[in-house]
């Protein structure tokens, strides 16, 4: 795991990415779009609180907004 608290981690950082991805899809696969959106919102809030650092969150918001073309 990369130890960094000052910047958004952009290198792969999960021990078992497949496992998390499957769990994520599993959690909301059967939800109608509106409920899936609510699920995502709750998840984001939980994780944002865990991250805690505004600069990191702001960077994540910027990248998620996909304003820039892929390098």
């Amino acid at each position: 795991m990369i130890m960094s608290s000052s910047a958004l981690i952009l290198d792969a950082n999960l021990d078992d990415p497949d496992r998390f991805y499957a769990a994520l899809v599993e959690s909301c696969r059967d939800l109608p779009p509106e409920e899936a959106l609510a699920f995502s919102a709750r998840l984001i809030l939980l994780l944002a609180n865990h991250v805690g650092d505004h600069a990191i969150l702001a960077e994540a918001l910027r990248l998620a907004a996909a304003g820039e073309p892929a390098a």
């Binding site: 509106e34 609510a38 919102a41 809030l45 939980l46």
Partner: peptide, 17 residues
């Protein structure tokens, strides 16, 4: 509104929210 309601829903059970 979905985000707002998600916040309220979480706040009922998890104090951080």
């Amino acid at each position: 509104r979905i985000f707002r309601d998600a916040t309220l829903e979480l706040a009922g059970r998890l104090p951080f929210a």
